[in-house]
Design a protein around this nucleic acid. Structure first.
Length: 241
DNA sequence: CGCCAGGTGGGAT
DNA sequence: ATCCCACATGGC
């Protein structure tokens, strides 16, 4: 249905007008510095990430798997503290220098910490040997890197135009539309819908993903959706209309 | 107490 | 291909 594409574009316009630029991906190691807020978001500045920023983003993408960002932030702070205290850097080789169990303890707050310590080591091992920009298939072949994590890295680190599908985008469009794909479709099916609706601009894809997360947190929550004052209420199927 | 949070891999059907 | 489950902490 071509109508979905129109809906997707309209939602972007409404969310951007309502919430403004989100300054994603947050970078914890720059939190509080020039242009970054206390949580590492950087709305409205032109961002030039360095190698350490890039690696922190990749680490965060793994840590946030099925986990709230708040918990991830605690882990990133612990990692940052450890890295500083031991004169290390945010780099694949320095992360690999940590024993698995030590790494697991540092990232305890983000849950699944044994699994994630293992995933981070596999990812670091890949990135350490990675000469140029990784391709999507290469990232997907790494144990622990699925489509959402791969696309988060490709989009926010390398600015490659992959729209990041997550639980929030599925929920919001599952509610605002009557298309079953958003709740039941595979990752690639849902991503394709977005790719067909919006031209491949990494800046727009990044902003859209961030806006959907913000909207899901403020209004389109899982348990008690706050429909009062919701900017999408006029074009949403949820509850009534 | 239960449910949710910026998923993924492995095994059974 | 598609379900089902383990993985696990912290907030509300």
């Amino acid at each position: 249905m071509e109508k979905i594409g129109t809906h997707i574009k309209e939602v972007y316009q409404i969310l951007f007008e309502h919430y403004g630029p989100q300054g994603w991906w947050p970078i914890q190691r720059r939190a509080g510095s020039e242009g970054f807020d206390e949580d590492g978001y950087h709305p409205g500045i032109e961002l030039r990430i360095d190698q350490e920023d890039a690696f922190e983003i990749a680490v965060g993408a793994v840590l946030t798997q099925n986990t709230s960002w708040k918990n991830v932030r605690m882990s990133l702070s612990k990692l940052h503290e450890y890295i500083d205290a031991h004169a290390l850097t945010w780099s694949p080789s320095d992360l690999l220098s940590l024993p698995r169990h030590s790494l697991a303890e540092l990232i305890r707050s983000s849950g699944y910490y044994n699994q994630k310590a293992k995933k981070l080591h596999f990812l670091a091992d890949f990135l350490r040997k990675c000469e140029k920009e990784p391709q999507r298939n290469a990232l997907l072949s790494i144990w622990g890197i699925g489509p959402e994590t791969a696309d988060s890295i490709l989009l926010y680190v390398y600015r490659q135009p992959y729209f990041v599908v997550d639980a929030y985008s599925r929920r919001i469009f599952g509610r605002t539309t009557s298309a079953a794909d958003f709740s039941k479709g595979t990752y690639d099916t849902v991503q394709k819908i977005f790719h067909q609706a919006i031209s491949p601009d990494p800046t727009i894809y990044a902003e859209y993903h961030a806006l959907l997360v913000q909207h899901a947190k403020v209004h389109c929550r899982a348990r008690k959706p706050l429909c009062t004052g919701c900017p999408l209420s006029k074009i949403c199927n949820f509850i009534e209309k």
